[in-house]
């Protein structure tokens, strides 16, 4: 009988190999965030000692934590994979969409356009994403092989049946699939894997000192892309990040957990979900994620 973690590893590896065998042009989304790091390590293990047979792609809002970009570049070099960067700034410069403006502007929603343009440009037919079903209620409903029409749209009402781990990736040119090998992982599984398999992560996941300010009940990091309003005092706090995304909409949590053992203990005891604790974008509406996914978001 397999341990639960090993069962997850073997399921994910099987999905990754299946896609590599059946699709012509797969790509793996890689942001340097913990889920995508774990997914890329699983891909490396799926094909070892051969190289990962597809490139990775980062959809870059330009509003990054510098530690994460450094980590991203080191990781792709270590694992010997090719990195493609889809730049939101380049999309804005090319007139694909206007930049986000206003007091609470975030480029997070703009990523969808750059993502879909990049998929079309490279003719990718399978796009691996590191999303997990435990993250959010719309994701809890999504298939492992998730069909996207020629507009990149997800239709939650007409998902194909998916039985026994036999996956159907049939599609027409211009359509594609999002593939979620980590569907059945929880946040805690991710951390246990990181510990057991000794996976390096960006430093911002571990407790450190940072200048932050309180906004909407969350600790936002001061950065060149986000500054505090006059009534939002900036303080130096010991924090870490539970998720890593666009710097304008990812919050830090108060934490002194600086080792994996401490982080695992903290995650196991957490009373708030990772997105609830750290993502401004999920607070928009009752179905914020579903609505974004329907138009092609990750």
């Amino acid at each position: 009988m397999q341990s639960a973690l090993r069962g997850l590893v073997d399921e994910s590896v099987t999905i990754i190999r299946e896609v590599a065998a059946e699709f012509e042009r797969p790509v793996m989304l890689f942001s340097g965030g913990k889920d995508s790091v774990v997914m890329l390590h699983l891909a490396a293990r799926a094909f070892a000692p051969a190289r990962v047979p597809f490139p990775v792609m980062h959809i870059d809002t330009g509003h990054n934590f510098p530690e994460v970009i450094e980590f991203r570049d080191r990781a792709v070099a270590d694992l010997d994979v090719r990195l493609i960067v889809g730049s939101v700034q380049a999309s804005i410069d090319a007139g694909r969409m206007p930049d986000a403006t206003g007091p609470r502007a975030s480029r997070n929603p703009l990523q969808t356009i750059t993502l879909l343009d990049s998929i079309a440009e490279h003719k990718f037919d399978a796009v691996f994403g590191g999303a997990r079903r435990d993250e959010e209620r719309a994701r809890a409903k999504e298939r492992v092989y998730s069909f996207r029409d020629s507009f990149g749209q997800w239709d939650p009402k007409t998902q194909r049946p998916e039985l026994w781990g036999i996956y159907n990736g049939r599609h027409q040119p211009g359509e594609h699939f999002r593939i979620f090998p980590l569907s059945n992982w929880t946040e805690l599984d991710i951390w246990r894997f990181v510990e057991e398999y000794d996976i390096p992560l960006p430093s911002i996941y571990f407790a450190h000192q940072r200048r932050v300010f309180r906004r909407d009940g969350m600790w936002m990091a001061e950065s060149p892309f986000l500054s505090a309003d006059a009534d939002e005092p900036v303080v130096e706090q010991t924090v870490r990040f539970r998720t890593v995304g666009d710097a304008t909409c990812t919050a830090a949590i108060e934490s002194t957990a600086s080792t994996l053992t401490q982080i695992i203990a903290e995650t196991a005891a957490a009373r708030v979900t990772e997105r609830g604790a750290t993502r401004a974008d999920d607070r928009i509406s009752e179905a914020g994620m579903e609505d974004r996914k329907k138009t092609g978001y990750f």
Partner: peptide
């Protein structure tokens, strides 16, 4: 509501 997460379901 914990599992019926889609707009149409709700």
């Amino acid at each position: 509501l914990l599992t019926d997460g889609l707009r149409a379901e709700r």
